[in-house]
């Protein structure tokens, strides 16, 4: 279960990165209009990292 959740979290990080990269490619012609999409990608990365941090902390506590 923990591995499944870690997989989901990693998926969010990857997916968020793809969204950011795809939108940044249009930065020169679109300007600030890519901001909502970039924030979306960053929020996905943030959620993924938050979940991974919780899982790592839980694993560390289990080891201790």
């Amino acid at each position: 279960m923990l591995m499944l959740r870690a997989g989901f979290a990693a998926g969010f990080v990857v997916f968020g990165s793809i969204v950011v990269v795809r939108l940044l490619a249009f930065a020169p012609q679109a300007g600030f209009k890519i901001v909502p999409g970039v924030v979306l990608g960053l929020a996905m990365i943030g959620l993924g990292v938050h979940r991974i941090a919780l899982i790592v902390r839980r694993l560390r506590n289990a080891d201790a």
């Binding site: 909502p36 979306l40 929020a43 959620l47 938050h50 979940r51 919780l54």
Partner: peptide, 20 residues
């Protein structure tokens, strides 16, 4: 605090993702 951060980010992501 743990669940709230996840909830806040999840709702924000869904709202931004749907609109984009």
């Amino acid at each position: 605090p743990r669940t709230s951060v996840a909830l806040i980010l999840t709702i924000l992501i869904f709202a931004l993702a749907y609109s984009n």
